[in-house]
């Protein structure tokens, strides 16, 4: 049984119950194979330099994610990516995590794993993420190769999206299909951070879509308003403006 760590990259603007559901579904799925044991989950919010419209400051996104995950005994928040001065490619974040795993393991996992068996890092993402691989110029080929081949993907499908199709259409993904785990979510849950922000701007209730503690934090800091939604308006997303073509983040909604 191989120990696994699940890493989720994205805006988490704000974190929603659906984000946390993805971890639960992915863990159940990997455990049901009988081959893996998920020893921890990591939420890695993107840095402010990502340049996405409506992205509030990383310190708030981190604080909200921490509040939301306070009651989880296996998913943690990692601040490294959000603290980088420039936007970080997902694969770079994964490399960094792998390096630090061996030196600071206790920070990232909740359950003990056999010594000498470092956990394997896998990228946790929604089904729409696989589609981004085929967008021309968005990903560097060697990064796709590394994420799918060296690390592995756990992809949770929501709604009508067909991750199988995206896998079939990519030679790289097809080649590494044993390393890509498709998890089916049987219930239609389309809670997205975009919808949550929209409701908050309009004064509508978001209770039971995001944890109460996060709602309190948002109100206390007046986080999501029409003003905040205009942040980075007309700014080109950092992955697209970076000289080299770079990957997008996985949990943008």
């Amino acid at each position: 049984v191989e120990p696994q760590l699940l890493l989720a990259c994205g805006s988490f603007n704000p974190i929603t119950n659906q984000h946390m559901r993805l971890f639960e579904l992915a863990r159940d799925h990997l455990h049901s194979t009988g081959q893996y044991q998920v020893v921890g989950g990591i939420v890695s919010p993107v840095s402010d330099s990502y340049g996405k419209q409506g992205l509030v400051q990383a310190k708030h996104r981190i604080a909200m994610a921490k509040l939301a995950l306070q009651s989880s005994n296996w998913v943690r928040v990692d601040e490294w990516e959000s603290q980088q001065p420039d936007w970080t490619e997902t694969v770079v974040t994964m490399r960094y995590k792998t390096c630090t795993l061996n030196t600071l393991p206790s920070q990232y996992h909740a359950l003990p794993f056999p010594s000498g068996h470092s956990p394997q890092l896998k990228l946790l993402c929604g089904a729409d993420f696989l589609d981004t691989f085929k967008v021309p110029g968005l990903w560097q080929d060697e990064h796709v190769e590394e994420v799918a081949g060296r690390f592995g993907l756990v992809c949770v499908s929501r709604g009508r999206l067909q991750p199988e199709q995206a896998m079939h259409e990519s030679d790289t993904l097809s080649r590494h299909r044993q390393n890509i785990f498709l998890v089916r979510e049987w219930m239609r849950n389309e809670t997205s951070a975009t919808e949550v922000r929209r409701a908050l701007r309009r004064g509508l209730s978001v209770k039971y879509l995001i944890p109460d503690s996060v709602i309190e934090y948002i109100h206390k800091h007046h986080l999501y308003t029409e003003d905040s939604e205009r942040r980075n308006k007309d700014v080109v997303l950092r992955p697209l403006s970076k000289q080299v073509q770079q990957p997008v983040n996985s949990w943008d909604d």
């Binding site: 709604g159 049987w186 219930m187 239609r188 849950n189 389309e190 809670t191 997205s192 919808e195 409701a199 509508l204 879509l209």
Partner: peptide, 11 residues
């Protein structure tokens, strides 16, 4: 419902 949130008790 502005965001589908189908959590059936049966499920």
């Amino acid at each position: 419902e502005w965001v589908a949130n189908e959590i059936s008790a049966t499920h």
